[in-house]
Design a binder for these strands. Structure first.
Lengths: 206, 206, 206, 206
DNA sequence: AATGAATGAGGATTCATTCAT
DNA sequence: TATGAATGAATCCTCATTCAT
């Protein structure tokens, strides 16, 4: 039994190595410059070996995406302690922005690239595992705000969409260097947080 | 002089041909399936010739991006007739969304891809010609709204950023198939418009 | 002894499994699309395991070839009842053609591919087990025809070669789609049978 | 004009180089071991360059096949001088056999491999350029024999098929080392010729 | 202005096989 | 007996780009 466990453990470690090397390359060379060959070179294995651990390149991408969501969800764990749902919503937004700015490559995979969604459509029968979990969290908080009359009632999905849009708009424009066109580069982050606060305030008032 | 003019004119025509063929390919085959060779084949010139008219592939991308902004700006021309700046802002948002949904390839280049911004940084000494024009329009309208006390005063740039973020968030999530995770695919567009209206309303009320 | 026997029996069964899976793949995916890995996947063993039962891929091919001959020989079993050797020869030809058309993959291995002959040269010291048996049958019938003055006398090997050539020529041109150049595709089979009859008739008359 | 001609000539020369190198490799390494890389290595060009001269690997194969037919047809040119069609038929057979034995790789491509027929079906709208020419020659001679009552009348296509089958059967069994199972290796060629003569004689007598 | 020729680098993936266990 | 891990070599083909003309 011990021997099987150790093998399984080792296998998991190599998978992790591959995923980490891939992410490292994404960070350094950008999404479209990552190839199986380069990943293999980095971990000093042969390209063929990667195919023992992952079916194909898309599967690697997909798992990276999953890891991103796990990280993001983990960063939201502390939120449950916050009683006031609107405060929770605010912090959720802050977390989202911080996550995006600190992990632009994960963010790219999770919310911008087409590839992972293709994999989902082709293989996972329409299930976006951790992505859907994250969205549920958002909708749940919004619902709670409405239940407690903290924000004006309306369609949960639509309001969630608007809130998500603000946060995603900010992050994606930022990591694609578009916000620097609107405010000076060193004020971008600060302005993003102000925007999030603005959104929460308008929600409260309205 | 006449001969030089004619030459210049012809040059401009061929550049246009190249750009139009490129966009045609982007639309038909998707962003990553467009190559210099395919563009050249389509216009029945040699690949080498393209390099006479454009420095490299990125420059083509950049000009395509410019064309996108010109289109978008053109679609906003009618807005000047609208007296009430907040109505103008609302229609600006609607236009933005419609433009993005109808021209996802242009939108991609203008607001999502990295490549065009690289060209700007490397060559245009920090100038994003038509992009900046579009942002000025937005800021100007917001300023007018504040001047006329139609919305609460604040930092123009920050509010513009928030407004832009909502619109961009919606479009970019939509064209990357993420909104389908939140509402049923055939209701996405409708919900997007509701989100825009929600944003305008909250601006008015606050 | 019993334990050894059982082991040997089991070994033979697995070899059979491997061979049957291989042929199944040949039929379904074509000669050049069969790999050790695919065979292993099909029988749910690891690729490595195949090397316990067969030295290499060529040996598998060789055994498949043998199985083909066994089938073909089996289909000729009924012929012994036929008294008249020239009738027997005719039916042998018909059987040959039918076998080839019904089992093009076996036929390919047995009479067209180089690989199995290589194995024979390298390992079997010049012995083509079942292939030679089949040829003996042919030669024997021809000899009998000559003995009974049913066909003109001559060198057995040469006449056998000619007869074999006709049959093989028809089958191999057919399964390689060359006969469709001569007669319409849906008449190929019919014409092949006529050709065989023509050959037998000329043998009789001459 | 002179400059264009020279360019065209040079282009044709390189195409020839590529085709010759390919054939050389076929001879040395066998059909399935020829790759674009190896061809390129042999002529000391980059693999990419081959794609300037040929669309893809199949096109190379196809042209090789064509060259084979041209050779074969050329070797039959002298036959027109022979008055008696049955003598012409006999020499056609001899030529066929000699061509096959002397150019087994061409023969392989022309009459055994699947690949060239695929290309024809996919691209040439069902036309097998020089192959069909060769078959017409055969049918024409047979028809002439029948017209002159030198052989028994019958369906031209069927008789042609039988004749072709004998010749192809002999050559293809020979180059795949199967005839060595029937007669001693050093008597194979002699027996093949005898078989051809036997066939012609039976045609005459019947 | 236009291009034919040429290329180095690289793409994802599959192959048969071996080795240690 | 059985296998998981590993790999070197190979596959066809496409890319953006340059150079000489």
């Amino acid at each position: 039994m011990g021997i099987l466990e150790r093998k399984e453990k080792q296998r998991e470690e190599i998978r992790k190595m591959i995923l980490e090397a891939s992410m490292q390359l994404f960070v350094k060379e950008g999404f479209e410059n990552v190839s199986i060959r380069k990943i293999a070179d980095l971990i000093e294995y042969s390209p063929t070996t990667l195919y023992i651990y992952f079916k194909d390149k898309n599967e690697i991408l997909f798992h990276l995406c999953e890891m991103g969501f796990e990280r993001m969800i983990a960063s939201n764990l502390a939120l449950v302690q916050i009683e006031n749902p609107i405060d929770r919503l605010y912090l959720l937004g802050e977390n989202y922005i911080n996550f995006g700015l600190e992990n632009p490559e994960y963010y790219d995979l999770m919310f911008i690239q087409n590839a992972p969604m293709k994999t989902i459509r082709e293989q996972n029968v329409g299930h976006w595992p951790n992505g859907d979990v994250a969205l549920e969290t958002l909708k749940h908080i919004i619902q709670e705000c409405m239940d407690k009359k903290l924000i004006q009632s309306g369609d949960v999905a639509t309001i969630s969409m608007a809130v998500w849009a603000v946060a995603h708009g900010l992050v994606s424009l930022a990591i694609r260097q578009r916000l620097e066109r609107l405010v000076e580069p060193d004020k971008v982050v600060q302005s993003m947080h102000e925007s999030i606060r603005w959104m929460i305030n308008t929600l409260k008032k309205a």
